[in-house]
Amino acid sequence: MALTTTGDLSQHFLSARRTVQVKDRLHRLSDELSTGKVADVALALHGETTRVSHLEHRIALADSHVSANRETGGLFAQAQLVLGKIEDRRAALTEQVLSLPANSTRDQRESVAAAARETFESIVGDLNHRVGGKSLFAGEATDRAALAAPDVLLNDLLAAVAGASGADQLLDAVDAWFDDPAGFESRGYLGDPAAYLNRPLGDGTSATLSARADMPALRGLLKAAALGALAAASPGLGARAADAVLRHSGVLLASAAQPLALAQGSLGLQEDRIEQASAQQAAERSSLAILQNELTSADPYATATALQSVEIQLEMSFMLTARLSRLSLSEHI
């Protein structure tokens, strides 16, 4: 019967190969013990990786929803800050206009009119506010300004009231310009006239920014401030007519408070909806991560035991290699 033997060189290579395999397993078990995750998911689950892949997909989807909702929440929060700033401007101008005495002087009227013009310009600038390059109050037309420049708006209004010789005529002309599709709707408002800024929240609902620069609350506020500015800028108005226009401007400014507050309240409800959706998505993401961890986590006790066993194997492999390296012909003679 033939006897198969292994030469010294072959034994050396076999020993080295076993040592490499043991080292690889040692490194893998060390990583699993430190990370708490199995290195080979397919091996740990006996090839049943479909559920893990599904969980990874759902976690990635939840992450994208959370990120998108964070961006949407930032947009709506900025819009709320802008509306609050506009309300502050409205309140300050209202107080200034309504404090004008009945028999005001020209200097007093011009001072209030200048304040009204400055407020008008500031409100237009507020409504053209952008976040990350996106316009807030232009509906879905986020790529452009919501309103034309303040000078353009006031010049159009001056042209519209050019023939007015009294307060009633000027008020009618301003009303007509703000209501006329060929006036404010085409030359003043530059955003999307139909669609509001709408963002899906990932839970089957969406958040809508209904505060748009052409909404009645903001249009009425712009009209009120513009009237105050025109009271001193219209050459055809006398002192009494200018006083009447300023008083009417003050009334409109005061009456704009409630619609603006309602717009802020509506926006606040949308912010709450975004926050709730974000919390729901974050909770779902946490639950999915727990399920994923249960499937891919390494048992610390079993891993530590296996690691200890592999360390012993590696020591024995080193001892065997050292013994083989000391063998020589003289030791067998």
Rank of each mutant, 00 (worst) to 15 (best):
E275A: 08
Q276P: 06
A277N: 00
S278L: 07
S278H: 11
A279F: 10
A279M: 04
A279H: 12
A279Q: 05
Q280C: 01
Q280K: 03
Q280W: 14
Q281P: 14
Q281L: 03
Q281I: 02
Q281H: 10
A282D: 03
A282K: 06
A283C: 08
A283T: 15
A283S: 11
A283W: 10
A283F: 10
A283P: 02
A283M: 04
A283K: 03
E284A: 02
R285M: 10
R285E: 12
R285T: 09
S286G: 06
S286W: 11
S287I: 13
S287V: 07
S287L: 14
A289S: 03
A289N: 13
I290C: 08
L291R: 14
L291E: 06
Q292L: 04
Q292I: 13
Q292A: 13
N293I: 11
N293W: 07
N293D: 05
N293S: 07
N293Q: 07
N293Y: 09
E294A: 08
E294V: 11
L295I: 15
L295A: 06
L295F: 08
T296N: 04
T296Q: 01
S297G: 07
S297C: 05
S297A: 08
A298G: 13
A298F: 02
D299Q: 06
P300H: 13
P300Y: 05
Y301L: 12
A302V: 12
T303I: 08
A304Y: 07
A304L: 09
T305H: 09
T305N: 09
T305K: 15
T305L: 06
A306N: 11
A306L: 06
L307C: 02
L307H: 15
Q308G: 02
Q308L: 14
Q308N: 09
Q308P: 01
S309H: 03
S309D: 10
V310N: 00
V310S: 02
E311Q: 14
I312C: 15
I312H: 14
I312A: 07
I312D: 02
I312E: 08
Q313T: 03
Q313C: 04
Q313L: 03
L314D: 06
L314Q: 01
L314W: 05
E315F: 15
E315S: 10
M316S: 07
M316C: 04
M316N: 13
M316R: 14
S317F: 10
F318A: 09
F318S: 06
F318P: 00
M319C: 07
M319G: 14
T321I: 05
T321R: 02
T321D: 03
A322M: 00
A322E: 09
R323P: 01
R323S: 12
R323M: 01
L324N: 03
L324W: 01
S325T: 03
S325E: 15
S325D: 14
R326D: 05
R326F: 01
R326P: 00
R326G: 09
L327Y: 04
S328Q: 13
S328C: 07
L329K: 06
L329G: 07
L329C: 09
L329W: 12
S330Q: 14
S330N: 13
S330K: 12
E331W: 02
E331A: 05
E331F: 12
